[in-house]
């Protein structure tokens, strides 16, 4: 992380809420972080912790009629949230691109893949000639590893396998050489063998294009593999932001411990199966008072303590730049004694 340079993406106090019949859902509640050129940030957390909503906000993809978004998201100095539709459109696909979870549904079934890749290029290169477009699309298809692209350029999405479709989605995302790539669980819907290929592809293309990747994932194995920085989200808040090594060796939030503890690994049976985090995520309509994790937290100090009364803010803990939103972060660090979590 180059601390002195200007971040390519700066999310400042982002709040996203949805009005539903049951009440207002606070999907993202005061999230701030910066991303710098060329780094990979992983965002982890349970389903419903606000990861995807947060990611969609960066391109302002949330439905404006139901979602209320506050805060600032700066991309290349432009505040995405207050910019005009035309300004945001100029950023979408050219500065910031996105890869969706399910490649089966992410491609338009009515047009050839070639047309869909070309479409993404043409919208930001209005004067491009047919010949140029064809060459660019073909080159991109080769880059993402589509065999015999001259033939496949005129085929429809349903003629491709899941992994190949995800390659097409990546081709669409990277055709304009974006600064930021948001990948929302890009491998979750794929076969395990294909998952590794797609991740490798993304990482090698990141080296080539020098973009920042924001990767949303459930898979801590993936995090260990690719991330520099990790953001752990819980109930719409960032509860921990750490360098990947710090997170795996000395997590600073009890929820991060729980997440790491619930990773299955070969030979776990001696310990008596998987560890789970007891309880279930809170309702985003009425969060618990105080720390929203306290009902599930083994370290919570109980009735009348700070855990029950005050919502903890994200602050620096330790010496390796970790940030934690736990009142007890320092105690917790002491009690773990900074021995490696995995040891």
């Amino acid at each position: 992380m180059t601390e002195n340079s200007v971040p390519v993406l700066s999310v400042q106090n982002l709040r996203v809420s949805f009005d539903t019949q049951d009440g207002t859902v606070h999907a993202v509640d005061g999230v701030s972080f910066d991303a710098y050129a060329g780094e990979t940030i992983c965002i982890v957390g349970e389903s419903g912790s606000g990861k995807s909503v947060m990611a969609s906000s960066i391109m302002r993809l949330n439905n404006s009629s139901t979602a209320t978004t506050e805060g600032r998201i700066l991309v290349k100095g432009l505040d995405v949230l207050s910019a005009s539709e035309e300004e945001v459109r100029g950023i979408r696909g050219s500065e910031v691109a996105m890869i969706f979870q399910d490649p089966m549904s992410a491609l338009n079934p009515y047009f050839t893949v070639g047309k869909q890749i070309a479409e993404a290029y043409v919208v930001h290169h209005p004067g491009a000639s047919k010949h140029e477009i064809h060459d660019v699309v073909l080159a991109m298809m080769i880059k993402v590893g589509i065999p015999s692209p001259e033939k496949r350029i005129d085929e429809y999405p349903h003629q491709f396998s899941g992994g190949m479709r995800q390659r097409i989605v990546i081709a669409i995302a990277l055709i304009n050489n974006p600064k930021i790539l948001i990948a929302d669980e890009p491998t979750t819907a794929l076969d395990v063998t294909v998952q590794a290929q797609i991740l490798d592809l993304m990482m090698s293309l990141q080296k080539e294009f020098g973009m920042t990747i924001i990767l949303i994932t459930h898979d801590l194995g993936v995090v260990a593999e690719v991330a520099q920085d990790v953001i752990v989200m819980y109930a719409g808040h960032i509860v921990e932001q750490s360098h990947v090594d710090a997170l795996f060796h000395a997590p600073t939030h009890p929820y991060s411990w729980g997440l790491l503890g619930s990773v299955a690994s070969y030979g776990d049976n001696k310990r008596g199966g998987l560890l789970t985090i007891s309880g279930s995520p809170p309702s985003l309509i009425s969060l618990p008072v105080g720390c929203s994790f306290h009902p599930r937290c083994a370290h919570s100090k109980g009735e009348g303590s700070v855990c029950m009364t005050d919502s903890p803010s994200l602050r620096s803990v330790g010496s390796d730049g970790s940030r934690s939103a736990c009142h007890l972060a320092d105690d917790v660090l002491v009690s773990v004694g900074r021995r490696g979590f995995r040891s």
């Binding site: 391109m59 549904s105 079934p109 009515y110």
Partner: peptide, 26 residues
């Protein structure tokens, strides 16, 4: 609500294009 329409928006396509080529088409 289709993912591919969201991808169309994420590409930076104009609303008119998305409505005609993506939404109406289906």
């Amino acid at each position: 609500n289709e993912d591919f329409v969201r991808l169309g928006v994420a590409k930076g396509l104009r609303l008119r294009v998305i409505l005609l080529r993506y939404v109406m088409r289906q």
